[in-house]
Amino acid sequence: MIVLGLTGSIGMGKSTTAKMFADFGVPVHESDEAVHRLYRGKAVPLVEAAFPGTTADGVVDRVKLAERVLGDQAALKRLEAIVHPLVRADATAFLKRQHTAGAPLAVVDIPLLYETGGEERVDQVAVVTAEPQVQRERVLSRPGMTEEKFEKILVQQVPDAAKRRMADFVIDTGEGMDAARQAVADIIERLTGKRPEGA
C-alpha cells in the first residue's frame, strides 16, 4: 500500500482536496477530523491539565484554547506535545486498517507535515497550494479570523514555496476545483496505475 501525505499551508484548500481523494474512493485520514474527535475524548483531560479552564462538559473549548496558545510559543509547544502523538496514533491505526483491507493507496492529511518531520512517515507527499492573495481572502473570510491571527499562524508554517519544492506532487486549488480534481485523479493514476472512476 502506498501512503500519500497531503499537506499545505492554511487556506490552501487542503480539506477540499482531501475530500476529492475520498470522492474517488481513496481512504483518507483527516487530521482536523481526528482532532475534533480527540477534543471530545482522549485529549480532554490532558488539555485541561495543561491549560486549566479550556474544557467544559467533557469537550475542549477551541476558542478558549486558541486564546491561550496563539502567539505563545511555549504554550503552543505544550499543546502540540499533547495533540500530535494522539493524532499520529490515530493515523497509524487507520493505516493498519487500510493495509489489512487491501487498499492500494491511502492518504494521510497532515497540516504541519514538513514542520513535524511527517515526510519520514509517508511514501510520497502532495502539497496543496494557491496564490497568496487567494489564500489571504479564504483565511480572512473565516469566522473570528483577523489579520493578526493569520500572520501568527503563517509564521509557524514552512513557506509555501519551500513546501512546493520538497513535494512529489503539487495541487493548485487557485486554478479552480475542476483543475484540482483532475490533478487529484492524475496523482491516483500515477500511484496506483489505474484511472479513478468518474475522472
Rank of each mutant, 00 (worst) to 15 (best):
G13A: 04
G13Q: 00
S15K: 08
K19V: 10
K19E: 13
K19D: 11
D23N: 09
V26C: 01
P27E: 10
P45Y: 13
P52T: 10
P52L: 13
A56S: 15
D57M: 03
V59D: 12
V59E: 12
D61F: 07
V63A: 14
A66V: 08
R68G: 09
R68N: 11
D72H: 14
Q73Y: 12
Q73A: 15
K77W: 07
L79S: 06
E80W: 04
A81L: 04
P85F: 14
P85W: 08
L86W: 12
A89C: 14
A91C: 12
A93N: 12
L95P: 12
Q98N: 05
H99N: 14
H99M: 15
T100P: 07
T100K: 12
A103T: 13
P104Y: 09
L105I: 08
E115I: 02
T116V: 12
V122A: 01
D123Y: 07
A126H: 01
E131T: 02
P132C: 10
P132S: 12
L140Y: 09
G144M: 01
G144K: 07
F150T: 07
E151G: 03
Q156Y: 07
Q157L: 10
A162S: 10
A167P: 03
I171D: 00
T173K: 06
A179F: 09
A180D: 03
Q182R: 13
D186Q: 10
I188V: 05
L191K: 11
T192Q: 03
K194S: 11
R195G: 06
P196A: 02
P196R: 01
E197K: 12
E197A: 13
